[in-house]
Computed example of a mutant assay.
Amino acid sequence: MNTFQALNLTPGRSICYSGFREGQQPGGICPSYNEVKEDLLLLKDHWSYLRLYDCDDHAEVVLEVIEKEKLPFQIMLGAYIVAEMNNFGCPWGGGVYTEAELDANRIKNQNQIQKLIGLANTYPTIICTLSAGNEACVDWTDHYVSVSSVINYVKQIKSEAKQPVTFCENYVPWLSKLKPLVEVVDFISIHTYPVWEYKNIHEALEYTKDNYFAVANMYPHKPVVITEAGWATNSNGRGIEPHNVSEENQEIYYHDLVNWTDKDGILTFVFEAFDESWKGSNEPLEPEKHWGLFKIDRTPKLVMESQMIL
């Protein structure tokens, strides 16, 4: 299924964008108007769609810059919902909260959903799709939310905003526990990361296709979008074998991915635009910090070097 046609969108390449630079992080120092403008001017000649994860101050600045500078982007805007249940199986030891914390989180989530709806209605020509959350139902998440709660959030968003609504999640839960959600969302959004599943670069594209079509073939009546797919360029060995990541491998995977998805008309958000040093542990080679197609100082990695010359 051509997802652009199904969602009434103009075909174009897409990327996940979070602009936090050195010394900045969510809940702390936020990128300034001029820093966001610098980022978007770097991205505008290569991508038409940006995915934002959260309705935070950063997202508001991004939307303001796009509107005031008249930049040619469409936005998938997400609400970042936090834990409403304990996940004692979280592999890195997170996911456990007191009842008081969970109660407070439910209030935060309701506020986040209302913020999403408000921004969707304030920027209806810029925000093209909405997400009710991100990786909140998968078994390893540290911000676990029940499927029934996500269903209620999706219904609430759909009742108060006009844009198509989804929920962004790893491909695996869509094959089982998220079946009740499928009939509620307007489209399915999957994340696929071959390198996290110990696939080498020669297996990567076929594995991505396997992940995609496992979901798409199960629900042929629903558009399926890839909202995260990418390749890290460094690793300290935590979850990703260091020999499997490099700028060379990132370049190969990026071109294989976009050539396939361009040809098949699959809306695909590459993960991600810029490296972000706040993510993961304090170790410099923590893989979470190294998914950008640009380094944190905004210099291009190998995959972008030739394209920046054009």
Rank of each mutant, 00 (worst) to 15 (best):
T208A: 07
I190A: 14
F88C: 10
W231H: 06
K279L: 15
V62E: 00
S235E: 09
M218P: 02
A216F: 01
H143P: 00
L119M: 14
Q5H: 12
L116W: 11
V61Y: 13
S176P: 00
Q110M: 11
T129N: 09
G118A: 15
E197P: 00
A214V: 03
K158S: 13
W196T: 10
Y219E: 08
Q156K: 05
V82C: 01
G28Y: 11
I29Y: 11
A229D: 07
A104F: 10
I127L: 15
T125W: 03
W47R: 05
F274M: 09
P72R: 13
G28W: 12
E160L: 04
I15T: 02
S246Q: 04
Q25R: 02
N105T: 07
F20I: 03
N134E: 03
E38S: 10
R298L: 11
M85V: 05
Y171L: 08
Y212I: 06
S159L: 13
Y97P: 01
G237R: 07
N34G: 14
I107M: 11
E183H: 05
E84L: 04
N134Y: 02
N170E: 04
P72S: 14
F20L: 08
I117P: 10
D210T: 04
F167K: 02
G12M: 11
Q307H: 11
N200F: 12
G19D: 06
I127G: 07
E38D: 12
L267F: 09
K263Y: 13
A214D: 15
P220L: 08
A59S: 15
V154Y: 06
G280A: 05
A120V: 13
R106Y: 15
P31M: 09
Q25C: 00
S18G: 09
T268P: 04
C16F: 06
M76K: 10
P31D: 07
Q250N: 10
A161Q: 14
A104C: 05
V147D: 01
F294L: 04
C137V: 15
L175Q: 06
E241W: 05
L119P: 07
V36D: 00
F20C: 04
E99C: 14
D264H: 11
A232H: 01
N152E: 10
D262C: 02
A232T: 06
E101A: 13
S48N: 07
N200W: 03
A216R: 01
G23I: 06
M76P: 13
E283M: 11
N234I: 02
E35Q: 10
G239I: 07
E38M: 05
D275L: 08
L9C: 12
I240D: 02
A229M: 07
K199S: 07
L285N: 09
E241V: 04
L130Y: 04
S48A: 09
F271M: 06
V195F: 15
A273P: 05
T125N: 13
P194F: 09
D103F: 13
E241M: 11
T268L: 15
Y80A: 09
G19Q: 09
W278D: 10
V147F: 00
N282R: 09
A59K: 05
L9A: 15
E272V: 01
A216Y: 03
N121T: 12
G95Y: 00
N244A: 13
A100W: 10
N2E: 12
V303F: 06
Y198N: 14
F294C: 02
S148L: 02
E169K: 00
N282M: 13
C168K: 05
K263L: 12
G94L: 01
D210Q: 03
K155G: 04
K295I: 03
G280F: 08
S189P: 05
G12V: 03
T98F: 10
